[in-house]
Structures are given as structure tokens and as C-alpha cells.
Amino acid sequence: MNWEDIKYMRVVIWGMLTILLLLLPLFTSRYIQSILIFIEIYSLVAIGLCLLTGFAGQISLAQGAFYGIGAYTSAIISLRLDISPFLGMVCGASVAGIVAYVLGKRFLRIRGFYLALITFGFALFVDNIFYRFDFLTGGHDGISGIPNFSIGGFIMNKDFHYYYLLLVAISFAFFLARNLLRSEIGREMRAVDLFTGGSEIASSALGVNIGRLKTKIFVIASIYAAVAGSIYAHYMTHIHPQPFDISSSLLFLTMIVIGGIKSLWGGIIGAIFYIGSRELISYFMGGATGWDLIVYALVFLLVLMFLPEGLISFPQKIYLNQAGKTTPYE
């Protein structure tokens, strides 16, 4: 296969995928659409986390909390102040961005995994605020009656509205993240990353402010999570603290590890895999049996053992085995 063929095939595959994604709501039930929406919401968080973990080499255990901050800020502001939910989303993203900036500025200057520790504490803190500040957050019961998104007089109250809104959001988020990785900031990230032949000391000697670089990425990842949370709140119209607790943060982390942290697609594949396996298992086993998490955990371990670069490296690995080649790591 020569290069022209490959290019042609890529265009065809991409075109077909785009058409499929655009037409999907036409022949799917509301149930399937809600599953697709959750895949999209989780993908949005996961793309941001891939940037942070896969490319900036930092672990955040607070993506669930930022997801929650986006949801709660947006919900509270649009309910209490009676303003457009889109403005609420901007507020939620700003709050998350500012918090991430403050945390990052303080804790990303230091080498090592301080961010993982501090975000763990932060996630617990945020979770407790959601429960305890009931005058604002409604405590255990959460907030109901959150308005749907609306543009002009058009109220987005159908599932497929949100499907398309999220499709646009993800495409845009992906576009931004891809540009970032191809830019000077992406180059600096590769220069800093030890696992891909970079060197922290050489890059700092060349004038790279590593702390500021990682803080930027952390802020972007948190804004992605907050936007996803905001869309979640206005889609569900009802939120409570449970989906934003520390286990959701861990879930996002496992998702990107399963999908592959070294690629933005990894986050999306991880989200598809998590929601897909959960729904399939509960469909066949009937309801919430807990089996979905057991299977998910098992797959997580198997992926770590046999595909450390995630599901996204699977085709490549098969190709290399067929051709009798080995990866450089073996």
C-alpha cells in the first residue's frame, strides 16, 4: 500500500465515521442516546486528563471534583441568578480554572507527584462541601429543576440536542488539544517528558519554566472537566454529590489508562469502553449487580499487564506481531 492509498483510505474512513456520528440519533432509541451522551461527557473529561497525565506526566485525583465544580457552579448560578446556562458554564469553567491555577502554581513547582496527593485531598474537600453546604448545594438531595440549555427561544430539552452539543464540544476540545500538542507548548512537554527521551534539567537550563508549563496543562484539563460537568447538570436537570466523589476521579484515571494515555484518542476509547461494558453487562446480568465493576477492574489489570500503552496500541501490536517485528521496548 503506497502513501496515496493510505491517504485516500483515511479520508474515506473519516468521512464514514463523521456521517455515522451525525446520523446516529436518527436510528437509535432514547436509551441508546443517553448512553452515547454519557460516553461523550466522559470523553470530554478524559481528553483533558490525557493531556495532563499522558503528556505533562502528572496525575490528578480531582478531575471528578472539577467535573462537580462545573456542574454545581453552573447549576447554582443559572438557577439562582436566572441567567443563561451557557453563562453558567463559563462561570463553572472559570472557577475550576482558577482553582486549578492556584493548586498548580503552588504544587507543580516541585518535582514528583505532589499534585496527585494534593488533588486527592482537594477531591475529598470538595465532596464534603457538596454534602455539607446544603443551603447552596442541597446536601444529599442535591439540586433539582436546573434549566436546560437554550439558544434564543429554543430550549434544548431532547436527548439528541445534547448529543449534538457534546459532539461539537468534543470536536472543539479535541481540536484545541491537538493544536496544543503540535505547538511550542507540546514541544516543551515532550522535552520535559522523561519517558519519551526528554530531560527536565536540560529543558530548564534552556529556559523552560516547567512548573508554569504543567500548571497550564492542569488548568486546561480542569476546564475540560468543568465544561463536561456543566453540560451534565443541564442535561440531567438534577444533580447530587455522588457522581462527583473521589471514586469518579479514580474512574477517569482508569479510563484513560485503559484507552491509552499517550494519545488523545485513548481518553475517548476509554470512555467508550467503560460505559459500553457497563451497559452491556447490566443488560445481560440485569440491573446493578456490581459485576460491571468486577469485569472493569479485571480488564484494567489485564490491560496494564499486556497492553501497557492502552487499548489504542492493540492494532499496532497485532500489526507488529504479524510482520515479525518487535516494538522497541521488547
Binding site: 514541544r187 516543551e188 515532550r190 522535552a191 519519551t196 527521551g197 526528554g198
Partner: peptide
């Protein structure tokens, strides 16, 4: 301490 997986020009561009 060359950035080994980057191209020559990228090493300098940093």
C-alpha cells in the same frame, strides 16, 4: 542530555 526522540531542529527550537 539531548532530547533524543525529538528532531534536530526541535532540540534547538526549545
Amino acid at each position: 542530555q539531548i532530547f533524543s526522540n525529538m528532531s534536530i531542529i526541535e532540540n534547538v527550537m526549545i
